[in-house]
Design a binder for these strands. Structure first.
Length: 602
RNA sequence: UGCCCGAUGGUGUAACGGUAGCACAACAGACUCUGAAUCUGUUUGUCAUGGUUCAAAUCCAUGUCGGGCAACCA
């Protein structure tokens, strides 16, 4: 009933400038169907910025009855790995599950683009398979998988040949440094006017492996001194004698992003190719290539939006990779990481992440989103679904001196006051208890309405107790509190309506189960860790604290599919490091703490 | 330096020539057997200067500031 994948009432569909464009295209019937795509390069783990893009692309598919293809943009084998291909699929599936999974466009394993002739022009088309759920796919005989740009290497190669034949591309023999220099100066390559036959021959020989890496490249012939550098005869193919995680040793030349991406979009029938702002200046090239190929079907178009920047974190793959490699975190899915897998492991629900993506909107403005927006989305969803439990993180012993030593009561507790159908449970109460160390102060500040010498407080679901004596060790540390209970004040009892200002949580010492609890805090101490200098100098040394907590016995049966609120403390999720008999909880996010704020003022 | 893009409270966004609204945050109060949640209320904004117009956040010009691109990366 509180499965993290449950879909709550969906918020009204968001509106932004891209959706406005799509809506206009839908109303004018520009395309038979809206088709987007999410095209990560498998060279790292997906992070929360990708989540924004996933929610946009799949959201549009969902709202306009379209499809969103998952495509690995795998044109640079030396940076990519199958590990990333797999993690990306897992992350996407998790994020769209129960929301847009039926909009996910996949392809049959080993299927290649259909080749046909339309309007006397040669055409390639790679139709999607969609409308399946992850569960269905698992049990199906037909193996479905993401699209891969590498599936189109034959077609992309053919497109390059077409461009050469049309005199729109040439093989260039300059060194990388020379090429840079010439492009910067807006000078034409001396090889620019090579004849078609020579270009064809050289390009074939590039493919056949006759040249070493970097010896030659294929360049588009556009405008050598265009104001937009991406039009200054950009490189579209380079030699790389490297095995590819999908195509193995078949190729030693690989298309550049700009060449592969627009053609991949076209082959898949993408209508709206949505990417981040840094590709804005590439758009004329995207259009130039597709127009130059003289293709029969409607062409896709590129639209750009601002990538996500979040306070107190870093987002670049390079920096995240560095954190992993230098073991500053435990891995890509360390719960402190802004990766989707880290966020998932921390206990954040896909619903919360989607609501976050919805709340931050889509624009072309590069702002920094406050983490409080993410934290709000996390708490909002967790508050609705988390089972309430009593657990004491930093225990101090309490003895109820007027409660019999051999007595145990089973008290009624509510699982979730926000959700009546979640029912209740029993919690054992006995003479010796643990309460939170923070809930007692020998010299309390003003407005402290927890336990203090001579003061009263209610034990949640149990009795009102009064602190009669404070026991200390030789060093003066408080080790134990002696209290008396108002035995008539039991919840539901005779004078249960009696009011005291404070209510605190507790566990019965004899019945408590131990759990390892990992308390996570933000990874960095400053809002913009990568603003300048070395971002690692801003690492928060206290971003992880591991403690052993005392938990109410029902937590023994905690499930990784549930979310828990340890009352008055925080939300927690079971970590996959848990084993039978050894509970490990991750703190997802604390509850708001008005008292901490109040206490700071004093 | 060249080219491209952007600028609305503390933060993120809406308003598409006609009442500057929403969310988060902050603050105050109510309620509370979670100092949570919930409820009520409050504070704070159109980068600047000109122009067009009955009317400008919106259109135009100039400037300022910020971001991006100038990889045989994506």
């Amino acid at each position: 009933m509180s499965n993290p994948n449950d879909i709550p009432p969906a918020p009204a569909a968001p509106s932004d400038f891209i959706r406005d464009i799509v809506a206009a295209h839908v109303s004018e019937h520009r395309y038979p169907r809206i088709h987007t795509r999410f095209p990560p390069e498998p060279n790292g783990y997906l992070h929360i910025g990708h989540a924004k893009s996933i929610c946009l692309n799949f959201g549009i598919a969902r709202e306009f009855g379209g499809i969103c293809n998952l495509r690995m943009d795998d044109t640079n084998p030396t940076k990519e790995d199958i590990e990333y291909v797999e993690s990306i699929q897992a992350d996407v599936n998790w994020l769209i599950s129960g929301w847009a999974e039926d909009r996910l466009g996949l392809k049959q394993h080993s299927k290649v683009p259909e080749e046909k002739t339309a309007e006397g022009k040669k055409d390639f088309f790679m139709p999607p398979v969609f409308g399946t759920s992850e569960a269905e796919r698992k049990h199906s005989d037909v193996k479905l998988e993401p699209f891969y740009a590498s599936d189109y290497f034959d077609q992309i190669y053919e497109c390059a040949v077409t461009l050469i034949r049309k005199g729109k591309a040439f093989v260039c023999d300059m060194t990388p440094d020379q090429t840079d220099e010439y492009r910067r100066l807006g000078k034409a390559s001396p090889f620019r006017d090579r004849g078609v036959e020579e270009n064809l021959d050289l390009f074939t020989r590039m493919k056949n492996g006759e040249f070493s890496d970097g010896a030659r490249v294929l360049r588009a012939k556009i405008i050598v001194d265009a104001p937009n550098i991406w039009l200054r005869d950009p490189l579209i193919y380079r030699i790389k004698h490297a095995d590819h995680h999908q195509t193995g040793g078949k190729w030693c030349i690989y298309p550049m992003y700009d060449f592969a991406h627009c053609i991949s979009d076209y082959i898949e029938g993408i209508t709206h190719s949505i990417c981040t702002l840094e590709f804005e200046v590439h758009r004329p090239l995207y259009d130039w290539i597709l127009e130059g190929l003289d293709l029969p079907r409607p062409l896709p178009h590129q639209y750009e939006f601002a990538r996500l920047s979040l306070g107190y974190t870093v987002m670049s793959k390079r920096k995240l990779m560095q954190l992993v490699q230098e073991k500053l975190v435990t891995g890509w899915d360390d719960p402190r990481m802004p990766t989707i897998s880290g966020i998932r492991r921390r206990g954040v629900t896909p619903v919360a992440l989607r609501n976050f993506a919805y709340n931050i909107g889509i624009t072309k403005y590069n702002g920094i989103t406050d983490v409080s927006v993410l934290e709000f989305a996390m708490r909002e969803d967790l508050n609705k679904r988390a089972l309430r439990r009593l657990a004491v993180l930093r225990p101090i012993k309490v003895v109820i001196t007027n409660y019999p030593g051999d007595k145990v009561e089973e008290l009624n507790a509510v699982n979730n006051p926000e959700n009546p159908v979640s029912g209740g449970r029993k919690i054992p109460f006995s003479r010796e208890l643990f309460i939170e160390r923070d809930d007692f102060q020998e010299v309390p500040p003003p407005k402290f309405f927890r336990l203090k010498p001579g003061g009263e407080v209610r034990l949640k679901y149990a009795y009102i107790i009064k602190c009669e004596a404070v026991i200390k060790d030789a060093a003066g540390h408080v080790t134990e509190l002696r209290c008396t209970a108002d035995l008539d004040s039991k919840t539901g009892g005779a004078t249960s309506a009696r009011k005291v200002k404070g209510t605190i949580h507790w566990v019965s010492a004899a019945h408590a189960v131990d759990a390892e609890v990992r308390l996570y805090d933000r990874l960095f101490t400053v809002p913009e860790p990568d603003a300048g200098g070395d971002f690692k100098q801003h690492l928060n040394p206290h971003s992880l604290e591991v403690i052993t907590a005392k938990c109410e016995p029902s937590l023994k049966d905690a499930s990784p599919d549930e979310r828990y609120q340890f009352e008055r403390l925080a939300y927690f999720a079971l970590d996959y490091d848990s084993k039978p008999g050894k509970l490990v909880f991750n703190r997802t996010i604390t509850l708001k703490d008005a008292w901490a704020k109040e206490a700071q003022k004093i």
